[in-house]
Design a protein around this nucleic acid. Sequence first.
DNA 1: GTCGGAATCGGAACATGTTTCACTTTGGCG
DNA 2: CGCCAAAGTGAAACATGTTCCGATTCCGAC
Lengths: 205, 205
Amino acid sequence: MTTPATSDGPAPGTALARSQAARRRRVLDAALRLAERGGFDAVQMRDVATEANVALGTVYRYFTSKERLLLEAMVEEIEALAARLEARPPVGVTPAARVVEVLSRGTASLQRHPEVTGAMVRAFGAADEADVVRRVGEIMTGIITGVMHHGPPTPRDLAVARTLQQVWLSALIGWVGGVDEPSRVVADLETATELLLGDGEEPVG
Amino acid sequence: MTTPATSDGPAPGTALARSQAARRRRVLDAALRLAERGGFDAVQMRDVATEANVALGTVYRYFTSKERLLLEAMVEEIEALAARLEARPPVGVTPAARVVEVLSRGTASLQRHPEVTGAMVRAFGAADEADVVRRVGEIMTGIITGVMHHGPPTPRDLAVARTLQQVWLSALIGWVGGVDEPSRVVADLETATELLLGDGEEPVG
DNA sequence: GTCGGAATCGGAACATGTTTCACTTTGGCG
DNA sequence: CGCCAAAGTGAAACATGTTCCGATTCCGAC
């Protein structure tokens, strides 16, 4: 155990830290580039290493498995997504409208790079990556709670948000697995939001 | 393309059909046996073949991939589950109570063999197995709609059931992935059911 | 500037899912 | 009964994730 795998790296700002951060970035970028066309299967660790100008062993020093690599990429992507959503908040007047808006925009963003999202979602089943998986879920949940009210979320808000996040994940799995149409993801989220936060519009049918 | 992979096999009842059904069963049983202790990783195709007294190529003739093998096993397990639930229906007086009961019993059943369930759930991310994955989802949804009312389910029932099924899947993934405690699965399902079918009991907190 | 240890490299080795192939067995059928 | 196409066998070959290891390079402390 030296630096990348565990936490406390070298003093931040040093040359070492910088070159390592750069390496890590190159690896992540290479993975994303490969995922972009070809999805999960196209992200082959040897290719990632080559594209990142790094030895295969180095890839594994930074990311303990292919799945972790993809999941960490997902954390980044979804954090960026959360930031964009925060920068340009939804405009709906009811919580339900805002939630739907934020989920739709998030989903649209993910669906813009289907192969990449597919690769990431496929990594979700991984064993031994609980921490990253948890982080992804938390960010997703945070995206939702963030737009429900002004103040801090109530317990009920948290429950609703968690439920929606679970629907989101399952719907994404259904989509990338080819079980459902892409549009089904947003449709499911609208339905669920309606059921959970019923905004007084017409009922389901 | 001969028999096992595609549908229309040999005339049912013939010796061929019987020996093939037996082989298929042996393979499934071998997979379950291996999954029982060791989960996904312990289900190694060579071992499955050996334990089933079958050549490796034969395993692949019946199941196009390891994931499909596990997913088909899951279909069986969950069909059996649905049958048991139907044989001894839930006794709750409200739809919400019955739904919670059925989901709890189903989850308990799955959690009784954690490694097996883990192996199956991990197979969910598979690509190119959309049909089996869809079937699993449908059965899960059917389990839920089956206990909501007497008559056929309304569109709203279907929407609620789908949502709950999605929560169920995500919660199972969280559990087998080590993200959440086992008890969290039922807890999430109770919360979601409460939110979706609010049975008039005290609210979430 | 030199030294020591950590990080990286290159590449082989290993593990396991999947495919292939030549050969043998089997079961339906004329 | 005897034929033959389909099914099954055994084993090797392949593809790719993961691990290992000796040689090399790099960084930071002195």
